[in-house]
Computed example of a mutant assay.
Amino acid sequence: MKEQKNRMVNERDYKPDANYVAPDPEKEKIIIALAGMITDRYVAKLTHTIKPDDPEVWCLDEVLTKEEAKMLLSFKKTRVNLQLEEIAERNNMSCEDAKKMLDHLAWIGVIETNRENEDHHIQYDVPIFVPGIAEFMMMNDELVKQHPNIATFFNLITQMPLEGITPMVPLGGAGVGMHVIPVEKAIEAVNDSIPIEHVSHWLDKYEGKLSIGVCTCRRQQAMRGEGDGSVEQECCIGLGDLAEWCVNTGRGHYITKEEAIAVCERS
């Protein structure tokens, strides 16, 4: 992994062994292909220059088996919804076995579910790394205890996609990266806010299907010896199908709209 002089890391961050040799070359090849499919680093994606010591590779290699990586690769693209039957067929598996593997992949945080279809049944997709897999893995208490290097992965993968282009991004972001929605009081002095810029718009829309989970940013900073010393707390709110997924995979619990508003005001 080529180091960037402005990359924010510290002595507690994981660094892959420069002399590491993969014990399973076939798995390494599959993982590199999967990392290329998911990565938000579009130069590396388009030029097929993902390396074995890149964070996308060593992190996925830690948490996935070769068979799980193959299943994820069978999706071919991120954020494409597939039905259970199609996933099973693509992987020459029974629906029962495919469902079992998908459930475990969802627990890890590399498969997401939603009900964005006519009869609102569960379907599956592979999220991108940020926002997506990086946060989902950090929200899994047991997983980060088993694989503490995920904290370093989270730290790096939130920085690397915008390296080299951040100075060119105009004020407001131009749709690049994540968008911050201000809490209502922060909007009072703004004359041109629109409904979707208000937290209340989203809380009203998904009332009855809101969840809350641990703050992934605070968690990764604490694990890496950084942060302001504040205790880890629940302040990441899930909306709609994401809320259902978070609850089903043990990443959070349902809350009311009033509780969500209190979290926004506190945070």
Rank of each mutant, 00 (worst) to 15 (best):
G227L: 10
D24I: 10
G177M: 11
L105P: 00
N19F: 08
T256S: 02
G240M: 03
T65Q: 02
D119E: 12
I108C: 02
D119L: 09
A186I: 05
V247C: 03
E135H: 12
K145L: 11
S74C: 02
P23H: 07
D119T: 09
V180L: 15
I30D: 03
A189E: 14
G175Y: 07
A151G: 02
M168I: 03
N114R: 05
P127S: 05
I128E: 15
V183K: 14
K2Y: 12
C235R: 12
L102K: 13
A44S: 11
S211A: 06
G227I: 06
Y14W: 10
H147R: 13
W107P: 01
E3P: 07
V21E: 14
M1F: 07
I31P: 04
I165D: 12
V130C: 13
E85R: 11
S193E: 13
P23G: 06
L72I: 05
K100S: 06
I157L: 05
H48V: 04
I128Q: 11
Q4G: 05
K257D: 00
R12I: 02
M93H: 05
V80N: 08
E118C: 04
E226T: 13
T166H: 14
D40F: 01
F136D: 10
P148I: 09
G240K: 01
V144I: 15
F129Q: 08
N155W: 03
R41D: 14
E258I: 00
Q83L: 13
M223W: 08
G229W: 08
V247F: 03
D119Y: 11
V110W: 01
P148F: 09
K27G: 01
E68M: 01
M160P: 00
T65D: 01
I128F: 09
D103T: 15
S193H: 14
G229K: 08
H201K: 07
Q123C: 05
M178L: 13
N114Q: 06
K15R: 11
G173M: 12
A174I: 10
E11M: 12
S211R: 01
A33R: 14
A33D: 15
E207N: 06
E67G: 01
Q233E: 14
E112H: 07
I237H: 00
K205Q: 13
M138E: 12
N140K: 11
L34T: 01
K29R: 12
V169H: 11
K76A: 03
A88M: 03
A88W: 05
L210A: 00
V9E: 14
F129R: 07
N248C: 05
E86N: 12
V214G: 03
Q233R: 14
G132R: 06
E184Q: 12
T249P: 00
D125C: 12
E56K: 03
G132M: 02
W245S: 00
L72V: 02
I87K: 04
F129H: 05
M178D: 13
E89R: 15
N81M: 10
A106W: 07
P148H: 08
D192S: 11
A151I: 13
V180R: 15
L143K: 08
C217N: 02
Q83K: 11
T249V: 07
M8E: 13
T65I: 02
A22E: 10
T49M: 04
C95N: 15
E3T: 12
I194Y: 10
F153C: 04
C215H: 08
M93Y: 08
T113A: 04
E68Y: 02
Q159Y: 05
S211P: 00
L73A: 13
F136V: 01
Y14K: 06
K77H: 15
A22W: 04
H201I: 03
